[in-house]
Amino acid sequence: MLGYIIRRILAILPVLLIVAVIVFLMLRLSPGDPAAILAGDAATPAQIDRIRTELGLNDPLHVQFITWMGQLLQGDLGTSLISRTDVWTMIERRIDPTINIALLTIFISVMLAVPMGVIAAWKHRTWADYLVMTFSVLGFSIPVFVIGYIFISIFSLQLRWLPVQGYTAPSEDLLGFFQRAILPALTLATIYIALIARMTRASMLEVLNEDYIRTARAKGVSERDVLFRHALRNAAVPIMTIIGIGFALLIGGVVVTESVFNIPGIGRLTVDAILARDYPVIQAMILLTAGIYVLVNLLIDLSYSLIDPRIRY
C-alpha cells in the first residue's frame, strides 16, 4: 500500500513537468506580447521593445525556461508582468472563494445526485426514474452561463431572495457566504449532479442484479439497508471515480460562473491572465489546477480500498 502511494506520488512529477513544458511553449510561441499590453494605447513600438527587454522577454527561450524552473524549485511562482504583484499573493487572495464554492458544489451535488441515482435505479422504469434521467440529460445540454442567468433572474430579481453578485468569506459572515454562494454553487452543480446521478444509477442497476442483493432481500433485510448498506457500498467505486473525473468539469465551470456572479476567484484570474498574456500567472495557475486535479484523483483512487475492501494495492 505504502509503496503504491509513493509510486503514485512520484508519478505526479513527470506529469507536472510535461504540463509545465506544454504551457511554457504554448505561451512563448503565441503572438501575444505582455509588454504591449503593459504600455497601453499611446506607446510606440520602440518603447514597447525597451519594456520587453526590461521584463526579460527578449531572452532566449531556454534561458527563460530555466529561470522559471529555478524559481519554481525555490517555491517562487514569480511576479505578475502586468501588475508587478507576487503571483502567490494573487492566488492567495483569490483562492478562498473558488475553494469554498467548489466544496459547496461538491457537497450539494453528492447529497442530491446520489439519492437521485439510487431512487432511479430502485424505481427502475417508473416515472421517478424517467424524471431523474430527464434532468440528467438536460443538465448536460444547457450551457452553464444560461443556467446562471436563469437562476439570477428567478431568485435574485423576481423573488428577491438572494443578492445578485459578489462573495462574502464564511469566516467573515457565514450567512452572507451562503446567501452569495448558493446560486453559483447550484449553477455549477447542475452538470455535476447530472453526471453523478447517471453514474450512480448505472452502477446501482448492475449491483442490484447481483445474487447477494437477492439473498439479502430474501433474508428480510430492510429495503433501505439493502439500498444504502449493501448496494451503494458496492456501487461506490465508479461513483467516486466520476466525482474525480468531474472535478475537471468543475474547474472549467468555475471560470464561467465566476464571471456571471462576479466572484473574485481563481477561474477569472486565470482567464484574465490569458487574455493579458500575463505569463507567470497563467503558468502558475495551470500548474496549480493540474496539480490539484492529479492529487484529487490520487486521493480518490486511494479511497477505493477504504470503500471496497476487495481492492488492494
Binding site: 439570477i152 435574485s156 430579481l157 443578492p163 445578485v164 453578485q165 459578489g166 464571471s259 456571471v260 456572479f261 462576479n262 477569472r268
Partner: peptide
C-alpha cells in the same frame, strides 16, 4: 471593483450593494 458583466453591476446598484 471590476464586474465583467454590466447587468450584474446594474443589478448590484439597484439592490444597494
Amino acid at each position: 471593483v471590476n464586474m465583467a458583466d454590466q447587468q450584474t453591476a446594474i443589478n448590484a446598484l439597484g439592490a444597494g450593494e
